[in-house]
Amino acid sequence: MTEARSDGRLLLLSPGDSVFVLRGQIEAGETVLVEGQAVTVAQRLGLGHKIARVEVAAGNKVVKYGAPIGSATKAIAAGDHVHLHNLKSDYTPTYALTGAT
């Protein structure tokens, strides 16, 4: 596989995954290549965050490490940041602080 269909800054953990993991920080306005498609990142994303590799319909599972990590709470487009705003656990809700800047 020599054809660069996706950015080197994106890490695919398992062939069937619906998300990539960021290998480093990506700034707002930067463009990343997601499965042959250029996507502009809307906000700064930190190392370890996830970007959708494929479209995921609301209610469908998001897959990482080849296993489901929860369900989409709204439609996710390829290149979208996948996090608390569009993914929820199928087990227990996630607690996060909202005051951080």
Binding site: G46, K50, I69, G70, H83, S89, D90, Y95, A96
Partner: peptide, 18 residues
Amino acid sequence: YGSFAAGNADGGLTTIEE
């Protein structure tokens, strides 16, 4: 609550299964 702290989410983790 799952075994999941606020800092886990800041670091890019979204759910307990992840």
